[in-house]
């Protein structure tokens, strides 16, 4: 009898462990789409970055607080650079799930607009979903303050947009990133991260 009780106890404990493993710990699910560190120089700019608006003198590769830590410096107004995207990834995208984190500094009164192209990698049922998401960043002049923003779509996805469906699942990739600076001073960007962050479900499963 005691042995049978012990078996049931062990089975119950195993079930609890398996349930916990299956449901996760309730933490948000973070899927990284783009991480750009601007570390490698190709010509006058970080590799795979090009100037698409402004004078060449307005964008340059610079070191930041350490000679081994680099970024891209944008000076003056109406200057835009374009950089690479990422590889296709299986993600679930919902309204507000695309988050950007920018590590950098700006002179007071300057603003950076980050746009990403997001495109479904393949979809047999029809033309791929594609859209542009953007957010305005306002970095301070202090290196130890990061700026976190939610990137929102400038137009709806093919299925009616994020607002009407809780999730759009599939293989997506960021096709490219642009950073547009406005304001008269300068900004130095050391790191840009684009994540897809899904909140944990209420039941943890």
């Amino acid at each position: 009898m005691r042995t049978q009780t012990g078996r049931w106890t062990a089975r119950a404990a195993l079930a609890v462990v398996l349930a916990a493993l299956a449901c996760g710990d309730g933490a948000p699910i973070i899927q990284n789409l783009v991480t750009e560190d601007f570390e490698v120089l190709c010509g006058d700019l970080p590799c795979d970055w090009t100037l698409i608006e402004g004078d060449p003198a307005q964008a340059r590769y610079v070191h930041t607080f350490h000679s081994g830590e680099h970024g891209i410096e944008l000076t003056g107004s109406d200057v835009t650079v374009r950089g690479p995207g990422g590889t296709p990834q299986p993600v679930q995208i919902s309204f507000g799930s695309i988050q950007g984190r920018l590590v950098g500094v700006c002179d007071s009164g300057n603003q950076l607009t980050v746009r990403i192209g997001l495109r479904q990698a393949f979809d047999a049922s029809g033309p791929p979903i594609a859209d542009t998401l953007e957010a305005d960043f306002f970095p301070s002049d202090d290196w130890n303050e990061t700026d976190d923003r939610t990137l929102t779509a400038s137009s709806a996805f093919r299925d009616g947009g994020f607002g009407t469906t809780p999730f759009t699942s599939g293989f997506f990739r960021v096709t490219g990133v642009t950073i547009e600076k406005s304001g008269g001073g300068s900004c130095t960007i050391s790191r840009l991260i684009i994540d897809d962050i899904l909140p944990a479900r209420a039941d943890g499963c």
Binding site: T35, D37, F65, R101, V103, W143, N144, T146, R191
Partner: peptide, 11 residues
């Protein structure tokens, strides 16, 4: 130090 916060934000 502040440097540690920046290093953390850089990954």
């Amino acid at each position: 130090e502040q440097l540690d916060e920046v290093m953390a934000s850089l990954g």
